[in-house]
């Protein structure tokens, strides 16, 4: 599905990514763990189409990623990517409309309930706690049932319940065939991984030999 082909990215003359190639297949979970400042977020933004690679290509099903293809991506970044002065409901309704979801109401209601935000649906996001904002960010990324989930520290700021919900939701998406690219700094894997990666001097390298999950394991989650 999503593929990076020899992608390099530099800011001015400072190289951050060096000839990164990776391919995300349906249902796979990839975990990237690397030191601060190694280019994890830059790589994720390149995958999401927010940053243009200095060289190389980002491909969707073998051709360059276009504006329309962005509907297949669900992204969580450091910020929640929402309007602070709109309510949780209004934000999700807006993104549901932008992703062409119809009817909006039942999908948004369900997303808010699953995220544990139903009681705060009419509260402005500005008044949300950090954990609530993160729940909303994950709910926004999952709202349109994307084929690829690009997640930058999605469990940060979440309490134990929130982490369990987010891990369940991401695992369920993977079980339904979504590929997951998860960036984390936690030592323990929050989800069973098909591949673990690290970044060293801009190169994407396998972190350790991991036994890929069998298709049966994927279905049972």
């Amino acid at each position: 599905m999503l593929q990076l082909d020899e992608v390099s990215k530099s800011f001015d003359v400072w190289p951050v990514l060096d000839r990164v190639s990776v391919r995300l297949e349906p249902g796979q979970i990839h975990i990237l763990r690397a030191p601060n400042g190694s280019g994890k977020t830059t790589l994720l933004k390149v995958m999401a189409g927010l940053l243009r690679p200095t060289s190389g290509r980002v491909l969707w099903r073998g051709r360059p990623l276009t504006a329309r293809d962005r509907r297949h991506l669900g992204v969580v970044l450091e910020q929640p990517l929402v309007y602070p002065d709109l309510t949780g409901w209004e934000n999700l309704a807006l993104f549901a409309a932008l992703y062409g979801i119809r009817p909006v109401r039942p999908r948004v209601l369900r997303a808010l309930e699953e995220a544990g935000l139903a009681a705060a649906r009419d509260v402005r996001v500005r008044a949300y706690s950090k954990g609530m904002r993160q729940r909303l960010a994950v709910a926004r990324a999952l709202l349109h049932r994307p084929c690829v989930l690009l997640l930058d520290e999605p469990f940060d700021g979440l309490d134990a319940d929130g982490q369990a919900w987010a891990a369940r939701a991401v695992a369920a998406a993977a079980a339904d065939g979504s590929s997951v690219w998860l960036v984390t700094h936690h030592a323990d894997d929050p989800l069973p991984a098909d591949a673990r990666w690290t970044l060293h001097r801009g190169r994407l390298l396998p972190a350790a030999a991991v036994t890929p999950r069998s298709p049966q394991e994927r279905r049972t989650r």
């Binding site: 504006a67 293809d69 991506l73 929640p80 929402v82 002065d85």
Partner: peptide, 19 residues
């Protein structure tokens, strides 16, 4: 400043519509 606060613009840039 408002755009930068919670990244609403980045959220919109990720949406499948012409920017």
């Amino acid at each position: 400043a408002g755009d930068a606060e919670m990244g609403a613009t980045s959220g919109l840039l990720l949406a499948p519509l012409d920017r």
